[in-house]
């Protein structure tokens, strides 16, 4: 089956600014992809080109098998980063209007609206004017607007921005529900923890270029945990024996906590027992891989970037590092 989204060498400039450069991306049907990157990285420009709201200077794209999203608009749900509503319109009328623009029959749209509002934690707001809702509530209304026509492809630009933790959870569950229904989901976020929790696959964009395109599982494997946080039981204990244990590359101590880096290929589970035997620990734990760290390492630039990841990217021919 054709991928849901396929971008080939996409490029977009605004005047002299290059917003997106040499962007290749394939999102298979039914996948849940996260696009991450700092503000201004080119995520929104990329998504707008996918949506045919902006048009690329060069390169090709295919959306749900069409040359343009315009030909498949009714099958795509889109929550833009800059989202608005008609302030004077009632919530129910607004959602029905959006559904009908997406080709849903009037009767179906009217039936779906109250049900979906209830699912998202907004029962009974259908008769309220949009201007009477809080910003967070409106964002959930807009999310309903993006999924009301049960799209095959759901594109969400920063869906969690401005939401309280309870709403974030509610939205995340609803997105996963759409994914289980069979929708392909592409979401962008600059809060990497969100992507880390939900996505099967992450794409990192930095300064308009893709710097990472990996399944989460593979990423976890590649960034094999080689850092161990160690805190001795007795703060005054001598921790120099840790350096002598085979497999240890470096030990750095800051404020009574030690950060131990292992040599590549060392088995962390075996070595942790030997640390405990050498110095009695108050806490000993494997540092969890965080996308943020990966990202910072990727974009720190030059030789400080992770060599293993670099090699892996080059081998796959996925793109060059800036």
């Amino acid at each position: 089956m054709e991928p849901a989204i396929s971008l080939t060498r996409l490029r977009k400039t605004f005047g002299t600014t290059v917003a997106v450069e040499a962007m290749d991306l394939v999102v298979p049907r039914g996948a849940l992809y996260g696009v991450i990157g700092p503000n201004g990285a080119g995520k929104t420009t990329c998504i707008r080109m996918i949506m045919s709201i902006l048009f690329q200077d060069s390169g090709d794209l295919s959306i749900l098998g069409h040359r343009s999203a315009l030909e498949a608009k009714d099958r795509i749900g889109y929550l833009p980063e800059e989202r608005g509503v008609y302030r004077k319109m009632k919530v129910g009328a607004f959602l029905i209007y959006m559904a009908r623009l997406k080709g849903v029959a009037a009767a179906d749209a009217e039936a779906r609206v109250p049900k979906m509002l209830e699912e998202i934690g907004l029962p009974g707001v259908a008769d309220k004017r949009c201007e009477d809702l809080s910003k967070g509530m409106l964002q959930r209304v807009q999310f309903v607007g993006a999924i009301i026509h049960q799209p095959d492809l759901l594109i969400l630009d920063e869906p969690f921005s401005g939401q309280d933790p309870v709403s974030v959870r509610m939205l995340r569950d609803r997105i996963l529900q759409e994914h289980r229904r069979g929708a392909t989901v592409l979401l962008s976020t600059h809060v990497m923890a969100n992507a880390e929790e939900m996505c099967q696959h992450v794409v990192m964009i930095h300064q308009g270029r893709k710097v990472l395109d990996e399944p989460m599982a593979g990423l976890r494997r590649q960034f094999d945990p080689r850092t161990i946080h160690f805190e001795p039981l007795d703060a005054a204990a001598d921790c120099s024996p840790l350096r002598t244990i085979p497999g240890v590359e470096a030990v750095e101590g800051v404020d009574g906590t030690y950060r131990i880096t292992l040599r590549p290929g060392t088995d962390p589970s075996a070595i942790m027992g030997r640390f405990a035997a050498a110095v009695p620990p108050a806490r000993i734990e494997l540092a969890r891989m965080r996308l943020e760290d990966v990202f910072i390492r990727m974009v720190a630039g030059g030789d400080q970037g992770d060599r293993a990841l670099r090699a892996s990217l080059q081998a796959q021919g996925e793109g060059a590092l800036a």
Partner: peptide, 8 residues
């Protein structure tokens, strides 16, 4: 900013 929602 309702326009981008419409343009989708």
């Amino acid at each position: 900013r309702v326009v981008e929602v419409l343009l989708s």
